[in-house]
Amino acid sequence: MGSNLFWHQQDVTKRARQLLHGHKSFVIWFTGLSGSGKSTIANKLDRSLYRKGISTYILDGDNIRIGLNNDLTFSQEDRAENIRRVGEVARLFVDAGIIVLATFVSPYRADREYVRKLMNKTEFIEVYVKCKMDTLKARDPKGLYKKAMNGEIENFTGISDPYEVPEKPDIVVDTSMMSASVCVKQIENFLFNNGYLK
């Protein structure tokens, strides 16, 4: 398949698009168990950055599975393919000069590392959204933990499937102890203090 395909170089470069938007482009990858607060934090961060005139887009795990990846199951192989596709989409957004907020359980380190390697070294920020299992079970906004513990959901991360905690995440936010707003402030401080945003 690939032997007759050639990457088409575009006249407008990533750097030119970044200059147009007025900031660097990169991926903020939120990983953590279901219900930990990934989407909530990403939405609040998205709103805050939008108000500052910064171009962002959220790639949300459920939204992607409803559309682009609706042909995939939750087997380990399909989870890897889910993240591979999302990584390629995220890379295109970064090339377009957009900051991507990607919210995916992404339980396996190898899959997250695959996405990291698609980007330039400074274009992937891993945020581990940490949360105690007791809190997750009590919170359970979608009722998924209850179903998983009753055997109604197979391959549920944290219950019947493993979650590999990031070994060296760029940012750790603990939603068992911190509000979403405090988490957003921590992430924004990282972005400004490390030169991602001015």
Rank of each mutant, 00 (worst) to 15 (best):
138 A>R: 14
156 F>R: 06
89 V>N: 07
16 A>Q: 15
12 V>W: 02
90 A>F: 03
172 V>E: 07
2 G>D: 11
123 E>Y: 01
73 T>K: 11
194 N>H: 15
76 Q>P: 04
68 L>I: 15
124 F>E: 03
42 A>T: 04
49 L>G: 05
1 M>E: 11
64 I>G: 02
17 R>G: 10
111 D>C: 09
183 C>F: 00
170 D>F: 00
9 Q>F: 04
159 I>F: 04
136 L>P: 04
65 R>P: 09
78 D>F: 07
131 C>S: 13
62 D>L: 09
113 E>A: 11
58 I>N: 02
152 E>A: 12
112 R>I: 08
55 S>H: 14
25 S>Q: 06
123 E>I: 01
77 E>Q: 14
95 D>N: 14
72 L>F: 08
134 D>C: 00
120 N>H: 13
75 S>K: 02
103 T>H: 02
132 K>S: 14
187 I>L: 04
182 V>P: 00
182 V>I: 13
144 L>C: 09
21 H>W: 12
5 L>K: 15
4 N>I: 13
109 R>N: 13
172 V>T: 14
122 T>I: 06
166 P>S: 08
106 S>M: 10
38 K>Y: 07
198 K>A: 12
115 V>M: 08
72 L>A: 08
114 Y>V: 04
42 A>Y: 03
52 K>W: 00
65 R>A: 07
